[in-house]
Measured scan of single mutants.
Amino acid sequence: HNLTITQGKLFFHYNPKLCLSEIHKMEEVSGTKGRQERNDIALKTNGDQASCENELLKFSYIRTSFDKILLRWEPYWPPDFRDLLGFMLFYKEAPYQNVTEFDGQDACGSNSWTVVDIDPPLRSNDPKSQNHPGWLMRGLKPWTQYAIFVKTLVTFSDERRTYGAKSDIIYVQTDATNPSVPLDPISVSNSSSQIILKWKPPSDPNGNITHYLVFWERQAEDSELFELDYCLKGLKLPSRTWSPPFESEDSQKHNQSEYEDSAGECCSCPKTDSQILKELEESSFRKTFEDYLHNVVFVPRKTSSGTGAEDPRPSRKRRSLGDVGNVTVAVPTVAAFPNTSSTSVPTSPEEHRPFEKVVNKESLVISGLRHFTGYRIELQACNQDTPEERCSVAAYVSARTMPEAKADDIVGPVTHEIFENNVVHLMWQEPKEPNGLIVLYEVSYRRYGDEELHLCVSRKHFALERGCRLRGLSPGNYSVRIRATSLAGNGSWTEPTYFYVTDYLDVPSNIA
């Protein structure tokens, strides 16, 4: 807008934040220059609390790290170098490059900038070799853009010569660093050979998330399962459950009422301010606690030095998902009996873990797994792929695949051998790939016309006998059925096997 004052003059007093240069501009645009008398524009009460600059400061050096910015700028000295009290560095987070010096300023003089007072450097006698002032900004957020400017702080001049310097606002972004852990990993099994893994992005990506790394490792069953005799009275049979499938998407929606109208769909109840505040506090606490764990609990591995020492970490090797089922080394339970199943799973520490690289999504279907087997899954978020990966501390989750139908069934015939004193040795093959492992066998036998009897055969007993022995049988026709019990439950009964026990007292003698 054009402003013209045809008559009258300007009068400025007691404006401590208004620089004289701005008042002189007002004289020019209003056409009143030359009308004012000496005392109409006070030299001592206008701009006496402001830094009124008329020179431009330029930054000469900028260096960044993930949490620091090192700045240096060209030296500046007023005509009387004693008038320079120091520099004021202003900075704040700036997602967009549209910041002005006066953003967030209120009537009390406060604003949204963080201000650092910096002492002037030592003055050199040689004007050509003056030290460049600077400042190291610490405690910054990774991968965050900051708006920065600097200006001088000078003393009051009796001659009211307006001098000083100020830089333009520059924008500097800190470097990326390792992201925080992925949030809320959930693993479920939808079949006997697959596990579905879902997660949420890290709360602090500290860069642009480029991919996720998912490692999985087959877990050995508890050692007590191999040692305890679950045929003993009072000892509860062990059981394991597989990871249940995901709930429906509708039930997972946030901010939804727990109660549904019987007449149909209901609208979600909005969260109160107290609920939102509580969630923010919980989120802040979780982030602080995660940072504490990362800094205190997890110790970084030592990389190899120039002395030739090897990095103890196993090298990563990509495998196809079809090879995942046989990740671990199978060892027989008892070496003397080769027909026992290889369900003991000690994992070799030198073995390469299978892994998958996930790009542009937060889910993965891990296939080719062994049925009813526990897996430990390790999830890392990465925001750099080359020249070397920059990934987060791992988040861990466990899951067990679903049982395989008929995996616990005894394959092959049940054979028998009759000894003296009416002892019958029953023999059968253990299931080759049971659900988890076989903890015991149930032997059901009966003599024709009598009630059915049951015998429990422990895992250890089966390994020693290759089956079991029935003792003290009365003469007669017998039928026997056997079924295995694994961590997933009972298998199917075998087809009945028949044998006849004679009275050993009636056996004919070869003595003449």
Rank of each mutant, 00 (worst) to 15 (best):
residue 390 R to W: 06
residue 229 D to W: 04
residue 443 V to F: 01
residue 492 S to K: 01
residue 350 E to W: 03
residue 249 E to R: 08
residue 334 V to K: 15
residue 335 A to V: 11
residue 299 V to W: 02
residue 210 T to Y: 06
residue 215 F to R: 13
residue 223 S to G: 05
residue 404 E to Y: 07
residue 498 Y to N: 07
residue 432 K to S: 14
residue 252 Q to I: 09
residue 408 D to G: 01
residue 375 Y to K: 01
residue 366 I to V: 12
residue 219 Q to S: 05
residue 435 N to H: 01
residue 484 A to I: 03
residue 365 V to E: 08
residue 304 S to A: 04
residue 475 P to Q: 11
residue 215 F to M: 08
residue 362 E to D: 15
residue 411 V to R: 15
residue 225 L to P: 05
residue 396 Y to P: 06
residue 228 L to P: 06
residue 270 P to R: 11
residue 313 R to M: 02
residue 444 S to M: 07
residue 493 W to H: 00
residue 302 K to E: 14
residue 432 K to M: 05
residue 284 S to G: 11
residue 446 R to L: 12
residue 482 I to H: 01
residue 340 T to F: 13
residue 502 T to S: 07
residue 313 R to G: 03
residue 246 F to K: 11
residue 406 K to P: 07
residue 443 V to E: 00
residue 268 S to K: 12
residue 269 C to L: 09
residue 205 P to C: 05
residue 278 K to S: 14
residue 375 Y to T: 02
residue 362 E to A: 10
residue 383 N to P: 02
residue 237 L to I: 06
residue 445 Y to C: 04
residue 234 G to P: 06
residue 282 E to M: 05
residue 503 D to I: 00
residue 416 H to R: 05
residue 459 R to T: 05
residue 274 S to V: 07
residue 378 E to T: 11
residue 496 P to R: 05
residue 334 V to I: 15
residue 487 L to V: 07
residue 465 E to R: 04
residue 380 Q to P: 00
residue 384 Q to T: 09
residue 454 H to E: 09
residue 443 V to I: 09
residue 418 I to N: 11
residue 468 C to N: 01
residue 504 Y to S: 13
residue 395 A to K: 14
residue 309 A to G: 12
residue 310 E to L: 15
residue 399 A to G: 12
residue 292 Y to F: 07
residue 318 R to P: 08
residue 264 G to V: 12
residue 211 H to D: 00
residue 387 P to W: 12
residue 317 K to Q: 10
residue 495 E to K: 10
residue 209 I to W: 03
residue 407 A to Q: 15
residue 462 F to P: 01
residue 485 T to E: 15
residue 419 F to E: 00
residue 443 V to N: 00
residue 209 I to A: 07
residue 503 D to S: 12
residue 313 R to T: 11
residue 421 N to F: 04
residue 322 G to V: 05
residue 391 C to H: 03
residue 389 E to D: 10
residue 383 N to Y: 04
residue 449 G to F: 12
residue 284 S to Y: 01
residue 468 C to T: 02
residue 500 Y to G: 07
residue 394 A to N: 08
residue 410 I to G: 02
residue 494 T to V: 01
residue 405 A to V: 09
residue 409 D to I: 11
residue 276 I to A: 10
residue 379 L to P: 01
residue 247 E to F: 11
residue 289 F to R: 08
residue 291 D to P: 07
residue 506 D to K: 04
residue 324 V to S: 08
residue 467 G to R: 07
residue 295 N to M: 15
residue 505 L to F: 12
residue 385 D to S: 02
residue 258 E to W: 13
residue 398 S to N: 06
residue 243 S to C: 05
residue 343 T to H: 11
residue 379 L to F: 07
residue 507 V to I: 12
residue 421 N to S: 11
residue 216 W to L: 13
residue 445 Y to K: 01
residue 366 I to P: 00
residue 481 R to V: 09
residue 239 S to H: 07
residue 233 K to N: 14
residue 418 I to G: 05
residue 449 G to E: 11
residue 309 A to Y: 05
residue 481 R to T: 07
residue 281 E to F: 14
residue 439 V to D: 03
residue 506 D to C: 04
residue 489 G to I: 09
residue 390 R to F: 05
residue 279 E to P: 08
residue 204 D to T: 03
residue 208 N to Q: 15
residue 276 I to M: 07
residue 204 D to W: 15
residue 225 L to F: 03
residue 416 H to T: 10
residue 234 G to L: 09
